[in-house]
């Protein structure tokens, strides 16, 4: 069996303190992984190591069997910050940005962008500048831009973390639908246990740089019992 992501004995420390301490994890193609844990548990560092944005001290990260040395197009990052869309580009141009160097016609680029803009329910806002969009719409836009190149992996760093409860729920639902359509592998960092239970195939609990537990989550139903179970694992 081939894995999309293979992590073996990964270590990264800052000033003698291990942020990621001897982590090993294998992610299958098309799998949706949520990493949860308290602040400072190393989940964001782990995501950045997988993306190649920071260099590891030791261990191995492989995507599609190839060792990760720097950021790559196969694994696209989506951030929590609302200001990740380029302020000088319209929504449509932002979504087209990853396609700029591709040798396809302008119409084709627009068509591809429009597919993902529709998928993220942003029809009609193509010519809006980011400052004219709400926080939720900006995050929808960021996801559309991340999906437009049809990357193998999406690395998501609490993308809905700054949204109000209602908007967050809407986005969770839309994103779940989109993921079902595209079948992209997702590694999703969150501190929201309900969110993890709603979206993930497997929930990885991190604590002090280590993986403390992994939950299988076939039902994708955030029942109170399940929430308490995972929360307890985090607080342990």
């Amino acid at each position: 069996m081939t894995y999309m992501v293979e992590i073996e004995n990964l270590v990264k420390s800052y000033g003698g303190l291990a942020a990621v301490d001897d982590v090993s994890l294998k992610v299958m193609k098309g799998e949706f992984i949520c990493i949860v844990g308290p602040s400072g548990c190393g989940k964001t560092t782990l995501l950045n190591l997988i993306g190649g944005f920071i260099t590891r001290d030791s261990g191995e990260v492989k995507i599609n069997g190839k060792s990760v040395e720097k950021p790559r197009k196969e694994a696209i990052m989506v951030f929590q910050d609302f200001e990740q869309l380029f302020s000088w580009k319209t929504l449509e141009s932002n979504v087209i940005f990853p396609l700029v160097d591709l040798k396809i016609s302008k119409e084709e680029k627009k068509k591809r962008a429009s597919t993902y803009i529709s998928m993220m329910k942003l029809d009609g806002f193509e010519n809006y500048y980011p400052k004219e969009l709400s926080g939720g719409m900006k995050q929808r836009g960021a996801i559309a831009r991340a999906l437009v190149t049809n990357p193998e992996i999406l690395l998501m760093d609490e993308p809905f973390g700054s949204l109000d409860a209602q908007t967050k729920q809407e986005l969770q639902n839309s994103f779940r639908e989109v993921w079902q359509k595209t079948g992209t592998t997702v590694i999703f960092v969150t501190h929201d246990v309900r969110e993890a239970l709603l979206l993930a195939d497997r929930i990885v609990v991190m604590n002090k740089g280590k993986i403390s537990r992994i939950f299988e989550n076939p039902d994708k139903m955030p029942t109170d019992i399940r929430v308490r179970e995972v929360t307890d694992a985090i607080l342990l």
């Binding site: 950021p71 951030f79 990740q84």
Partner: peptide, 8 residues
């Protein structure tokens, strides 16, 4: 900058 790097 990260987005730029991400798209190589």
């Amino acid at each position: 900058r990260k987005i730029g790097q991400n798209y190589e």
